[in-house]
Simulated scan of single mutants.
Amino acid sequence: MSSTASIETTTSTSHILDNPAWAALTGPHAHFAERVGRAARYPADVAGFHAITDNDDPRAWADLAALVGPGGAASVRGVDEAPDGWEIVRSGQGVQFVDTGLRAEPDPEAVLLGPADVPEILDLVARTEPGPYLPRTVELGTYLGIRHEGRLIALAGERLHPPGWTEISAVCTDPDHRGRGLATRLVRAVAAGIKERGDHPFLHAAANNTNAIRLYESIGFTLRARTLFSLIRRTGPTVAADPRESAADPEETA
């Protein structure tokens, strides 16, 4: 979507994927979380996602203000009007897909990628622009790649991890090697690992990325939700967070 930091918010918690970053940061990815009460984020070199419990809760916005500091910015999900003390810089539409018929299977050519591969991953991401990828994003889950003559030419992996779900992300192929089905093979291979541990695959895309959307629908993903992503910046003073809210509240860690 954007190379800036991002924040997931929701006005409803009827489904865990309504607020996947919050569910991940207070669940399987809690060991990554930097948290102030009702707001949380990943470290800046891991992922750009921030999250709050409820975008209608002033206490959550106060905690977010304390977390990002004066002038702090993030890409906000589901907010089309800036709360007091914030301004929207720009917005874009996004879509969320869930697996309803994907054939998941390992790929014999897919290789596991790790920290030593990060320079190559960042180079491929810079040339293909699948979305934000940072030096420690590889720590969020399994990343698989395909090489040609030793060079990384295709990539896909795991990002957000709400309980019971895992997001497939960073799906990209070198322009010189497109049209060979490499992205499909890697999505299926990553999904095989996700399903093997009992989770369900899901993913996000920009609403105007018609090629990616066509691919995902053709291999068994179904549109679940449309949402608005906005770059939002803190303009007001930081409000001190309530120290009683600094510990996790079991009722807010859905």
Rank of each mutant, 00 (worst) to 15 (best):
H29G: 00
D174Q: 11
W165P: 15
A60Q: 03
R59T: 07
V125T: 02
G236E: 11
V95A: 07
W61N: 14
A39K: 10
R197W: 03
K195G: 06
T142C: 08
R233E: 05
R136A: 04
A62T: 05
D80M: 11
G94M: 12
Q93P: 11
G92I: 13
R188M: 04
A240C: 12
G145S: 06
R147Y: 07
A40W: 03
V95M: 14
P135M: 11
P43D: 01
E251V: 09
H200M: 11
V138I: 04
E139N: 15
S6F: 03
A51M: 01
S6N: 08
A73K: 12
I213N: 10
R197G: 05
G198A: 12
G94S: 02
R35K: 10
P70A: 11
D107W: 09
D174I: 15
R178W: 10
T137I: 00
H50L: 15
G157W: 08
A47V: 00
G101V: 03
S14V: 05
P20S: 02
G37S: 12
A240K: 10
D18W: 00
T100L: 08
S6P: 04
I88A: 03
A51P: 15
G131W: 01
D117W: 13
G69A: 05
S230A: 13
T26E: 12
I16K: 01
W86E: 13
D199C: 07
I88G: 11
L223C: 03
Y143H: 14
A104T: 04
H161S: 10
E158P: 00
H50T: 02
G198L: 03
P130I: 07
H161C: 04
H15T: 02
A39T: 09
P162K: 11
T13I: 10
W165F: 09
A24N: 03
A82G: 09
A5F: 13
V76P: 00
E167W: 00
T100P: 10
G72R: 14
G27C: 05
E129Y: 07
I16F: 02
R159T: 08
P250R: 04
G71W: 13
R127H: 07
P237A: 15
E81T: 09
A225N: 04
G164A: 10
E251F: 11
L122V: 06
V171A: 10
P43W: 04
V239Y: 05
T184D: 07
